[in-house]
Structures are given as structure tokens and as C-alpha cells.
């Protein structure tokens, strides 16, 4: 009759209990953002404790997010309709990637239009971008995508020790990538290549784009690493079965996504020079 019959076979399969976490998480984000804003303008708005408010807000945000995650993990343990849930979560993740892709797409769009269709977007001649450390980091990140995929397969086949090894390898490669990127940032900043350096104002647009694209990507790498570490911990706690391990799927998809974005960034910014 219908392709989605399974959902209604269990009449109470979709009866979620109330949750305090969405409102608590929003409130914490509020505190973090208001604290940051007050801090940025040195307003002393929170009785001269602006930076304290900011850090408390960030801490509370992470805490409430974990509380939310904990409630979801607990609920899943008692839920019945596995297929429905997996298909919902997969579609959610794909849609989330669409929005991420559009955000990155805007940055790429800005880059290509500025670099190839308008004036005033000057690439510095005297500053060397990339080189072999970036090339090696790129190869390592691509490798980590493969190890991550094999880790996912290992979880699917219930080979726990293999999955552990591959996950830890992926995490290590990710950290090496972040280290390489941080090192490159450091070297570039020493050479005066940073947005807001008014002595090199002619490079400002290019350096802004360079830092926002690689930086936004770096934030994604860090998020992906956090996800992979959580996945590893949950695997050690025995949360996954061969059929039920959506966190592994999501983390590995996310990692592939981050990898693909990096390859595109690498080609655009380091390789394709006008």
C-alpha cells in the first residue's frame, strides 16, 4: 500500500516525552552570545563581568548540548521503530549537509567572483602559501577519510578492535591536519599576512577570504574530531550494535563531507592561481 507502512505498525512508536534541553540550550547560547557581545564592546554590561558571563555561557552551552544528547541516547534504547528512525536521521543529516554546502558555496562563490571577475582582489607575490606541509596535510586528510570509512565498515561487521584502531588512526590524522593548519597560520601571521594588517591593506580581501574559508573548514574539522572522539567513547561503552550505530554513520559522513570541502578548497586556493 505505502512505502512508509512501518511507522504505524506500532501505534505509540512516535510519542516523545517532554524535554527541558531545547530551552536550556537556547538560554545557554543566549548567555554565551550576549557575554561575547558585551565583551567585544567592553561595555561592562554584566556588572563588569562580561568575560566571565561569556565563558559561563559557553560552558553551559556545551553542558546542555550533552544533556540533550544523553536524553536522545536513553530514548533510543527503549524505542521500537528502528527503520523509521534510521531513515529519518539519514535524511536529516543529508539535509544538514545541503545547508552546510550552501554556506561553503557562498564562500567559494565570493572567491571565484572576486578572483576571476572583479578587480581589487590581490594575491600577495612575496608570501608563499601552501607548499609541501599543506600538500602532506591534504594527503593525510584524504587518507583519514578512507580509514574512517573502514572504521564504519568494521562497526557494521561487529569487528570492534579493528574499528577502535581505525577510529583512533582517523582521529590522529585529523589532529595532524589541524596542527599543520595552525602551523601555516602562524608562519603567515609572522609574515604580516592577516586581515586587518593595515600595512598590507591591498591583500586584505584575499587574506580575509583565505582565513575565513580555511578557518570555517578548520572549525568543521574540529567538530568532526569531537564527533569521532564521542563515537569512539560510545563504542567503548558498548552503545553500538551491528544494526544500530547511527552516530558512526553520521560522524563518518560528516568526515567525508569535511574532506571533500577541503579538496575543493585546496584546489581553489592553493592550486588554481590566476
Amino acid at each position: 500500500m505505502s512505502e512508509h507502512a512501518s511507522h504505524h505498525d506500532d501505534p505509540w512508536s512516535h510519542v516523545p516525552p517532554p524535554s527541558p534541553w531545547p530551552v536550556l540550550f537556547t538560554g545557554s547560547l543566549c548567555v554565551a552570545v550576549f557575554g561575547t557581545l558585551a565583551n567585544m564592546f567592553e561595555s561592562g554590561f554584566f556588572w563588569n563581568n562580561d568575560s566571565l558571563v561569556m565563558f559561563v555561557g559557553i560552558f553551559l552551552s556545551l553542558f546542555t548540548l550533552m544533556g540533550w544528547g544523553h536524553q536522545i541516547i536513553k530514548e533510543k534504547a527503549i524505542s521500537h521503530d528502528l527503520d523509521q528512525q534510521q531513515s529519518d536521521l539519514k535524511l536529516f543529516t543529508l539535509m544538514f549537509f545541503v545547508s552546510e554546502a550552501l554556506a561553503f558555496g557562498t564562500i567559494f562563490g565570493y572567491y571565484y567572483i572576486r578572483a576571476f571577475a572583479t578587480v581589487g582582489f590581490v594575491r600577495p607575490d612575496d608570501i608563499h602559501l601552501g607548499g609541501w606541509p599543506v600538500a602532506v596535510a591534504t594527503i593525510l586528510l584524504i587518507t583519514s577519510s578512507l580509514t574512517c570509512e573502514f572504521a564504519h565498515k568494521a562497526v557494521e561487521h561487529g569487528r570492534k578492535s579493528q574499528a577502535r584502531l581505525l577510529l583512533l588512526l582517523t582521529i590522529t590524522l585529523g589532529f595532524i591536519f589541524l596542527y599543520a593548519q595552525g602551523k601555516e597560520y602562524g608562519e603567515l601571521i609572522i609574515q604580516g599576512f592577516w586581515p586587518g594588517n593595515y600595512e598590507a591593506v591591498e591583500y586584505n580581501a584575499f587574506s580575509s577570504l583565505f582565513y575565513i574559508s580555511t578557518g570555517f573548514h578548520g572549525v568543521h574539522v574540529a567538530t568532526g574530531l569531537l564527533m569521532l572522539i564521542l563515537v569512539w567513547l560510545r563504542m567503548e561503552l558498548g552503545h553500538f550494535t551491528q544494526k544500530r550505530h547511527f552516530s558512526v554513520v553520521a560522524a563518518s559522513w560528516y568526515w567525508h563531507f569535511v574532506d571533500v570541502v577541503w579538496v575543493l578548497l585546496f584546489i581553489s586556493i592553493y592550486v588554481m592561481v590566476k
Binding site: Y110, P195, V201, E202, N204, A205, F206, S208, I212
Partner: peptide, 12 residues
């Protein structure tokens, strides 16, 4: 201090 949109800093 970025210069994405501020024409005085190379922005568009």
C-alpha cells in the same frame, strides 16, 4: 578588520 565588503580595504 577583514575586508570582504569594505571597499577601502579591498572589499566589494
Amino acid at each position: 578588520g577583514t575586508g570582504f565588503l569594505d571597499a577601502s580595504r579591498g572589499g566589494d
